[in-house]
Amino acid sequence: MTVLNVTDLRISYGPVQALRGASLTAAAGEVVGIVGESGCGKSTLASALIGLPAPEARVSGRVEVEGRDLVALPETARRAIRGDRVAMVFQDPMTAFNPVLTLGEQLVDFQHRLPAPKAEKRARAAAMLARVGLPDPQLALRRYMHELSGGMRQRAAIAAALLMRPALLVADEPTTALDVTMEAQIIHLLRELRQDHHGAIVIVTHHLGVVGELCDRVYVMYAGEVVEEGTTDEIHHDPRHPYTRALIACDPAHIAGRVERLPTIPGRLPDLTAPPPGCAFAARCPQAGPDCAVPPPRVRVSPTHAALCHRVRP
């Protein structure tokens, strides 16, 4: 069953076209990854997925969650969906919680859709904290954010998002703020959780390793567009778009043996106030030719695999 269906989503901030017609889907029980370097529009996309674009953003296209279009709905209806049917694990758990309320007060507040007494909400919060592996949930509920460690905060953020059993869970860079050991633990936790979470999970990250560990399918984004999509296997072992290939080549995990210096992609992101009419990656692409100045076709490689490129053959 399709939980999330995004079609031709465009978002701009003033003259900046942050998202230029992105389309993607996610089904119940599926974990979908969105990868790209910073500035590719993935955080803008994440905000739109939970129906909370920045106030100054201009949005067009459709973001359907369980059949309801978040873009078209009025704010009150959107608010009723947020925190209930869709929830988000935020990037930086230190600043994502209120510093002057205890974790317990906030976790109880976040269940405001639930018609239940406060004690029950507190018990649910404690149970969820235990589920995500916080050692002493009752004590943690009485803690303020600055009294918890980075790993505990991230677990608490995940618990908060799961409290209402949302149909769609969006995790924005869930491991970026953590050190390597913590990152491994959180990935392990997310893997466990996908077993008993029946909704769809969308993980937004710049880290291909996280995608490989967790996701069923991957969307690769560049300059506000989805340039390649496919199963995790297809993306890792048969990347077709030159940008995806470059991204994998730059991932330290894929480099065998000693290298003099880490490879990088030369050049910079195009100016999103005036994006090129043709392929946005052409200026940095080793295979670019004159035909790249016209908009590239979306070439289907397999039923699940497609790339936005002139050079890709089915």
């Binding site: 929830a87 930086d92 994502a96």
Partner: peptide
């Protein structure tokens, strides 16, 4: 601040956000 965005992401009403989450700070 980020935590105000979190409170919005959990669908809390603007009035509650202002009185409970923002004013106290």
């Amino acid at each position: 601040a980020n935590h105000i965005r979190t409170a919005r992401a959990f669908g809390l009403s603007e009035a509650r956000i202002v009185t409970r989450y923002a004013l106290r700070l």
